[in-house]
């Protein structure tokens, strides 16, 4: 039993610089402990042996952007992750009484489960016709996967168990059609999602949005970047709009902390204050 050699700070800087130059994405404000482990894991999977080899193969073009980014990001594959959250979100949306059209962003498409869950909820609440849903990710490769609407059949047991815990109506499988070993989200839901590639570090978010669902994205980033992302979100969110974070993410130490009120004691749903 051996621990992998620790990646040195200089090696890491060199790698981040190379990725930034070649793939136009700056990882310098990623959470450093987990980023190092993701890189270590990638090196092991691809049998590269060292960070230096990884750097060289990025430069030579042997390692492609999409394959690296897909391994670096943690793509969790669960519908209705944290059922208690989805149960609470349904209650909150019912109380909001949306009169006009509803613009929603879901940040971090990953393999699609989060936005698929959202579509099922909107359908359940009869909000589908007035909702505009945009799902964004920094990784074009993973967006393609999400766009296919497919989820692996082997994850259906966990998905169904989550779905039952949310207390939503109907059967989860009614929203999907079996396709080989996979299940495909029904077209009426899938076609309503707009997918978009976005560079969280460089791009500004623009728009007047009513709900921003951004669960487990901040956990990849260090405090500085967390603050930057929250500021971008803040600028795009309408008055009384909802900012939704993962169960252990918070706005507490950021510049926007005083501008929101957390709804309920448990789930991380923040409502933008009217000023």
């Amino acid at each position: 039993m051996q621990t992998a050699p620790e990646i040195g700070i200089n090696e890491l800087r060199k790698l981040i610089q190379t990725i930034s130059e070649r793939f136009d994405y700056d990882f310098s404000n990623y959470s450093s402990a987990s980023f190092k482990r993701r890189i270590q894991r990638f090196i092991e999977i691809k049998r590269l042996g060292s960070v230096e080899n990884l750097v060289n193969k990025i430069i030579s073009g042997e390692i492609k952007k999409n394959e690296l980014f897909t391994e670096v990001s943690v793509n969790v594959t669960e519908l209705f992750r944290d059922p208690s959250f989805w149960k609470y979100l349904r209650k909150v949306l019912l109380e909001q009484n949306f009169s006009q059209n509803l613009k929603i962003w879901q940040i971090g498409s990953s393999s699609g489960e989060e936005v698929f869950s959202l579509m099922i909820l909107l359908n359940d609440l009869n909000l589908l016709s007035k909702a505009e849903v945009i799902s964004v990710d920094f990784n074009a490769g993973i967006i393609e996967k999400a766009q296919s609407g497919l989820i692996p059949g082997k994850s259906m047991e966990l998905n169904t168990s989550n779905f039952i815990k949310t207390g939503y109506k109907g059967e989860l499988t009614n929203y999907f059609t079996a396709e080989g070993d996979n299940f495909k989200l029904n077209k009426d839901l899938l076609s309503k999602i707009k997918f978009k590639e976005i560079n969280f570090v460089k791009d500004s978010f623009s728009g007047s949005v009513d709900i921003i669902l951004c669960r487990n994205i901040l956990i990849y980033h260090n405090p500085q970047m967390q603050n930057d992302i929250l500021k971008k979100i803040h600028q795009s969110l309408n008055m009384s709009g909802l900012l939704i974070l993962g169960s252990r993410e918070t706005i507490e130490w950021s510049e926007i902390a005083s501008k929101y009120t957390m709804l309920g004691p448990e789930e991380r749903i923040f409502k933008k204050n009217k000023v």
Binding site: S31, S32, S34, V74, I219, N222, R248
Partner: peptide
């Protein structure tokens, strides 16, 4: 969640494998 201690005196969490 995994709990990581980071340089710069803060804690980060992650959902890796």
């Amino acid at each position: 969640y995994h709990m990581n201690i980071e340089l710069g005196n803060y804690i980060s969490l992650s959902t890796e494998e």
